[in-house]
Simulated scan of single mutants.
Amino acid sequence: MTFTEQTARDWNNDLALIRDAARQAGEIALSHFGKSPEVWWKLEGRSPVSAADFASNDRLHMLLLGARPDYGWLSEETDDDGARLKRETLFVVDPIDGTRAFINGEKTWCVSVAVVHRGSPVAGVLFAPALEEEFFAVAGGPAVLNGQPIAVSAARPGEVSEIAVAEDMLKSFNPAFRSTLRRIRHVPSLAYRLAMVAAGRIDGTVVKRNSHDWDLAAADLILERAGGRLVDMQGKRLVYNRADVQHGVLCGAAEHVLDSLVAGLDAG
């Protein structure tokens, strides 16, 4: 058997652990939602972080490393000391993916938690408490939303594809290809956008450069197990837990639109 085929059984205990932890962290974040939590700005004022992010992160750190002290740790809200690079398995965490939405009172934010083993996600959960949605997957198993298996959209010949993409990137496609796409309203949470693709609500999304492992790992696995793929501009799957956790331009989509999106971006 391949690694992926043999691990559906092996990683289920970790999946149960991260589902419980994500739910507890999500309830903490939800207790701050709509109550104007204190907000700070990082990365030269371009990225917000709230008191809810830190509270959620603290709960995840306590629960996850308390249960698996031999695992590594990578979180958006924890300083990265590089120790994770010596660990074969680690938790990759975003305590609130979509902080801008969270601060603005929009419900499309989620807690993202993945277990990454040898560079690949093997268990992942996205918990969106304001929407009462939980997406999860384990290597070799199905992608699940609120207890029901999900799948990416099927090809619809002659119909336009719904894509989450920045307006400036959409304009870079040639006019003929652009006419086959319909851009949806922006969703700040990258993880949730990929979950929308996994659930077949949209056909694909284009990710601008400088996303990070914590934005992607859990959603990447959920999308894969739903029948889609997240790839770079060479069509390659991502490798996680590198020294540099940033990524270039990416496409996540159902198979019927993925290659065209990558080719259109490359041509643009």
Rank of each mutant, 00 (worst) to 15 (best):
P95H: 07
A217D: 10
V187G: 12
G158S: 05
D220E: 13
S50K: 10
L74Q: 14
V262H: 12
A22Q: 12
A25Q: 09
A176S: 14
R225S: 03
V115W: 06
D213E: 13
V187K: 10
G98Y: 09
E159L: 05
V262F: 11
F3C: 10
R46L: 06
V93N: 09
A8H: 06
V245H: 12
T7D: 03
D14I: 01
G268S: 04
E134A: 05
M169Q: 12
R156V: 02
L170W: 13
G82E: 13
V125E: 13
K171S: 12
L258K: 07
P157S: 08
P142E: 14
D266L: 13
S161C: 09
V93F: 07
F3S: 14
G252C: 03
A22T: 10
A199G: 06
P188A: 10
V206R: 04
S260R: 14
S260V: 01
K42M: 06
K171Y: 10
A198F: 02
M1D: 03
F135I: 03
A123Q: 09
H61V: 05
I163P: 00
R182T: 09
S153V: 01
G227Q: 03
L261Y: 15
Q148V: 12
E162V: 02
G82F: 10
F173M: 08
R185Q: 15
R229W: 08
A267M: 08
K42Q: 10
V113W: 06
H117I: 11
M233C: 08
S31R: 11
P69W: 03
S172V: 09
R183T: 04
A114K: 04
D81F: 07
R209D: 14
D14W: 08
F135L: 11
V160Y: 00
P149G: 05
G235I: 07
V111L: 01
A21R: 09
V165C: 10
A123S: 13
F102W: 10
S47T: 15
H212R: 15
G72A: 07
L238Q: 08
V113P: 00
H256T: 03
R118G: 00
L190C: 01
